[in-house]
Amino acid sequence: MDTLVLRVNGMSCTGCEHRIGTALRRVDGVRDVSANHTTGRVEVRIGPELADRGVITQWITAAGYVVVTEGTQ
């Protein structure tokens, strides 16, 4: 099992953490989600059947948040 750590902008409260967690737990292969609005970090534990960071990013974006990639703020 792998852990994917992402920096996410737009989280401002525990409700945001819950919203991201709820969205990502719907994705096949996601085993656990830990989101922290204070640090802007989302940790996603994924099984071997889901190795695509893009899928996780799409779900976070669809929930209304921005995944920060290298070179963006």
Rank of each mutant, 00 (worst) to 15 (best):
M1T: 08
M1V: 12
M1P: 05
D2A: 13
D2Q: 14
T3Y: 06
T3Q: 10
T3W: 01
L4C: 06
L4Q: 08
L4S: 04
L4Y: 08
V5K: 13
L6W: 07
R7V: 11
R7T: 13
R7A: 10
R7Q: 13
V8K: 04
V8Y: 03
N9K: 14
G10C: 05
G10Q: 03
G10K: 01
G10T: 03
M11S: 04
M11L: 04
S12F: 05
S12M: 08
S12C: 04
S12A: 11
C13Q: 04
T14G: 13
T14F: 01
G15D: 00
G15W: 05
G15H: 07
C16A: 05
C16P: 11
E17L: 02
E17T: 01
H18K: 12
H18M: 09
H18Y: 13
H18Q: 11
R19M: 05
R19Q: 12
I20D: 07
G21C: 02
G21M: 02
R25E: 09
R25L: 14
R25T: 07
R26T: 12
R26A: 10
V27A: 05
D28H: 07
D28V: 08
D28A: 13
D28P: 12
D28G: 06
G29H: 11
V30H: 12
V30T: 09
R31Q: 15
R31C: 08
D32Q: 14
D32Y: 08
V33G: 04
V33Y: 07
S34C: 02
S34Q: 13
A35Q: 02
A35S: 09
N36D: 14
H37S: 01
T38A: 15
T39Q: 01
T39D: 01
T39R: 03
G40E: 05
G40C: 01
R41D: 02
R41M: 09
R41N: 03
V42K: 00
V42D: 00
V42P: 00
E43A: 12
E43H: 03
V44D: 04
V44Y: 10
V44W: 08
R45W: 11
R45L: 09
I46E: 02
G47P: 01
G47E: 14
G47C: 02
G47Q: 07
P48W: 05
P48F: 04
E49N: 12
E49A: 11
L50R: 14
L50M: 10
L50K: 06
A51Y: 07
A51I: 08
D52G: 04
D52L: 07
D52T: 06
R53T: 14
R53K: 13
R53F: 05
G54R: 14
V55H: 07
I56D: 05
I56F: 13
I56T: 09
T57L: 03
Q58A: 15
W59I: 15
W59A: 15
W59G: 00
W59H: 15
I60W: 10
I60N: 09
I60R: 10
A62E: 12
A62W: 00
A62C: 00
A62Q: 11
A63T: 07
A63L: 07
Y65L: 12
Y65Q: 11
Y65E: 12
Y65A: 11
V67C: 09
V67G: 09
V67K: 05
V67A: 08
V68Y: 04
V68Q: 15
V68P: 00
T69P: 00
T69F: 03
E70P: 07
G71M: 02
T72I: 01
Q73P: 00
Q73H: 01
Q73I: 00
